[in-house]
């Protein structure tokens, strides 16, 4: 399955990119599994950010939430607006 992945703020800076389109291997079913796989694929910053937050299709998500073909998955540090 293919997904669009977005990175923001300090995470975007550490990774040197704001987004990527990836074809995921079989067996990746959740946001948490996707995070672990990305970390193993050279994106170590995903493991280093404390309290990393996730969104799936622009809604806040949990590590246990499913990732489906065509989804937009975003990773970012805790928000600091306002």
């Amino acid at each position: 399955m293919s997904v669009r992945i977005l990175y923001f703020a300090s995470l975007r800076e550490h990774l040197g990119m704001g987004s990527e389109e990836l074809e995921l291997p079989e067996g990746l079913g959740t946001v948490g599994e996707l995070r672990a796989w990305l970390t193993s694929q050279g994106r170590e910053a995903l493991a280093a950010v404390p309290n990393l937050r996730f969104a799936v299709n622009q809604e806040m998500a949990r590590a246990s939430d499913p990732v489906l073909d065509g989804d937009e998955v975003a990773f970012f540090p805790p928000v600091t607006g306002g």
Binding site: F8, A9, S10, A55, M60, A74, F76, P77, P78, V79, T80, G81, G82
Partner: peptide
């Protein structure tokens, strides 16, 4: 907004 809106 401070805890849920994606601003950095």
């Amino acid at each position: 907004l401070k805890t849920r809106a994606p601003f950095w």
